[in-house]
Design a protein around this nucleic acid. Structure first.
Lengths: 114, 114
DNA sequence: CTTATATGTTGGTTAAAGCCAACATATTAG
DNA sequence: CTAATATGTTGGCTTTAACCAACATATAAG
């Protein structure tokens, strides 16, 4: 993704770690199934180089390639509850009742925090 | 990602569905927090266009951008168990005992199945 | 140990992801 | 209803992701 964004060039440590772990997990799953990079790559529909990148947790790789790997390994359902509104306790608290379709007008600047 | 791969051009229905859902969840979480696309995009470190793509579940968008959105929303930990070897019952069964570093030599062709 | 094969690495090519500006439309809040 | 603002859409530009070939290295299995 050209004109590379900050998040890709220098991801927060937590994101980097999360990707590294995801990649490692995919690799473990592949080896357990005795599949070569090339085998799984073919199932996924990418080159073996891309799959290798995934197993390293490369940030700039398309999410579909990652999801495709999970899918080909039969692990896609693990994504089911990610960011699920039902489990978003923080969000549930903040929610006002009605579900707005936009974030509404700005009052001042809300928070420049982090 | 240039020379676009099959998985990105035409993802399996399950992958497409998974991405759509993830994007929708991210959008819900953003709105609950009363953040504009621009607000969250800034925190993530991408343009508002990319964040918009994410909320639509665009397959070709970099995984770091998706993970960055989860991170900025405080939802990154939801990724923790994805493809975790501990939960990979299929893999556990297949595993022989030792953890090989490669998939080993090919015997014949294993399985061209799906 | 040897051999077959899996994986890593490099360099070059090409097509598209992410950026932005400008404008259109939708939605909110008064 | 109206004004303010959030989000959608378009087209053009730049950078680089994914591809491949060729070779190097690591690992597995006899």
């Amino acid at each position: 993704m050209p004109q590379t964004s900050k998040i890709i060039k220098a991801p927060p440590a937590a994101v980097e770690e999360s990707l590294r772990k995801l990649g490692a997990n995919i690799r473990t799953a592949r080896l357990r199934r005795k599949l070569r990079l090339e085998d799984l790559a073919k199932k996924v529909g990418v080159s073996r180089y891309v799959l290798s990148d995934i197993e390293k947790g490369k940030p700039s790789t398309a999410i579909a390639s990652y999801m495709g790997a999970l899918w080909a390994l039969g692990l896609l359902e693990d994504m089911k509850d990610v960011a699920s509104p039902d489990n978003d306790s923080e969000g549930k608290i903040l929610e006002k009742a009605r579900a707005p379709k936009t974030a509404g007008k700005r009052k001042k600047d809300l928070d420049n925090d982090f």
